[in-house]
Structures are given as C-alpha cells and as structure tokens.
Design a protein around this nucleic acid. Structure first.
Lengths: 156, 156
DNA sequence: GCATTTTGCTATGAGGTCAAAGCTTTGATG
DNA sequence: CATCAAAGCTTTGACCTCATAGCAAAATGC
C-alpha cells in the first residue's frame, strides 16, 4: 500500500472511531460530540456569535447554525440579538446548558485516553505534535487549494 | 489547553480539511471522496460485496449501500447477484466506472502530498506511524467500549 | 427434514457537514 | 443622503454516516 493509501486508511479509522463515540455519547447524554463541543466552548469562553464559534471549533457557520438549532430546541442555549449590531446573534447557555456542560463526559473514548496516558510523556507529545503537523499541512492547503480546480486552471 | 482538547482540535482540523477536499473533488470530477474510495477499491481488488467493501474502507455496510446507490445511479457500478449465495450482491465496475477510476485524482490534497513528500523520510514514517498508532488506540476501544454503556454494566 | 439462528443486504430516520443563495443590517462611496 | 458593497446569519439542498429494523437466504441444530 502506498503512503497515500496508508494515510487515508488511518484517517478513516480515526474518523470512524470518533463518529462511533459520538453516537455512543448520544445514548449516554442525549447530545452528540459536536453539540458537546459547542456547549463546552460557550462554557469556557462565554457568549459567542455563531461565526466566532465556527472559527473556534473549525466548522462552517452553516453547520453551527444547525447545531445551535438543536441546542435551542433542547433548551440548552438561547439566541440573543445583539443591541449594538443587529446582524449579530449571541449564543448564550441557559442554566440547563451550563449544567449539561458541567456534567459532560470527555469527548474522546475513556479507553483511548486511559491507554494514551499510560504512554511515555515523550510519546504522548510526539503523537500530539504529529497530529498538529498533519493538521497544519492540510490547513495550509486550504488557503490556496481552491484556485487549482477552477475551470481553465488545469491547463492555463 | 489540555492534551484532550489539543487532540480534539487537531482532529477536527484534519477532518474538516478532508471534507473540504471532498467537496472540491465533486466539482472537479462529479464524485465525492467516499465514492472515489469505493471505485478505487473495486478497481484494485475486483468485484466485491458491500460487506467486503465496508471492511476494506472502514465504513458501515449501510453507508456502503447508500454510496453504491449513487454510483449505480451514475452508471459507474452494477449490482450483480451472486449465483452461489443469493444473499450476496457483487458490486462491479462498468467500463465507465473503470475509466472514472483510472482518471481519478489522488484523494489527499495535492499541496499536502507535495509538502509531505518534501519531509525527511524518517519524518514521513513517523507521521504515518503516529496516525496508525492513534487509529489503533481508538480502534481497540471499539471492541469493548459498547458494553460500558449497557444498562446495568456501570455498577455490576 | 424442519426450526432456529446467523448472515447479507436494503430501508428508514436522524445528525453532521458544506456551498450557495437569500435576507437583513452595517458601512463606504459618491 | 442614496446607493452599493460587505458582513452576519439562516435556508436549502445534497451527501455522508450510523443504528436499527426489516427481508431474504444460508447454515446450524435437533
């Protein structure tokens, strides 16, 4: 298998594990991983606009809108229109939302974290650094990738 | 930020980059990343059943069914009932499917691969090994994670 | 041989995710 | 001011993803 394929398969295994964990969280807490990420972010940083949340958690604004819809539905978040700029909506945790955040389990599988923490510190650091390195290489790509696929760009 | 959060954020950045790349592929080829993965797998390994594809690419059987639906729709794949075991359906590339596979671009961003390949070989290997290590730690979790949430299992 | 279980696939329903289009408000330009 | 552009959010539509439930066929048990 090529490097390319090995990377792809490893990433797929990881994203699948995360997805399955998210489904598991739903049963345990009624909330999915993205929903928990959002309320945890609000808990830590206070009221935020959808666009600010999107930047903080690396999701699109549209995705945050749909996640907020469900959190509002569940009574964990309120939308409050800003007075200074009427375009802006602030997402605000309700008391119930605060409680949910305080009681939320960690988002990575307990077993994964347990195993991870038994590794040598240097190994833990190396794994985290590797993930961040890969994220960087991919993020960097975002900045100038789009033009490569514009019509006419392939054979200028 | 805790290790836990750093891992989460890095993973989110990576999955987002992959997702955006998939959207970009749609515009260039009309096919999404999962669809390309499936036809590439069929191209390399020949006709396969949905369950075999699911195992090969780390997706659920249900997901493969829906991806095959769209590939059939697009005329790239045929479903052929097995003679020996009538439960089994074989996914088979059509000539058009073979052609699409042969012309398909790589699934990771070109710029990512370019950058990646400029790294020292030991560094490339380390990154791949790290990804696989993390995938292992998470996969391992899958095997016995479910029971942890079964009713009655928490306090046996 | 027949009943039960297992295996393989598909259908259903719910979230997640994004781009693009649409709406409102703000800001800049003349 | 009046106009036009930009910014912020939501809507729409498409696909991915899974669990669960359903259906059919094969394998196992008695």
């Amino acid at each position: 298998m090529s490097d390319h394929d090995e990377i792809l398969v490893a990433l797929r295994r990881i994203t699948r594990a995360i997805d399955l964990q998210s489904k598991r969280l739903v049963k345990a807490t009624g909330l999915t991983a993205p929903q928990l990420v959002v309320i945890d972010t609000l808990r830590k940083r206070g009221d935020m606009s959808p666009s600010a949340i999107a930047r903080a958690v690396s999701l699109s604004q549209a995705t945050i809108t749909s996640i907020l819809d469900r959190l509002v539905q569940a009574g964990l978040v309120e939308r409050v229109k800003s007075d200074t700029d009427k375009r802006v909506v602030m997402a605000k945790l309700t008391p119930k939302g605060v409680e949910a955040s305080d009681n939320s389990p960690e988002l990575l599988q307990a077993g994964f974290l347990r195993s991870f923490r038994t590794l040598q510190p240097w190994e833990q650091n190396m794994l985290i650094a590797s993930l961040q390195r890969i994220a960087e290489l991919m993020d960097a790509e975002e900045l100038d990738a789009a033009p490569f696929l514009e019509p006419g760009e392939l054979h200028p």
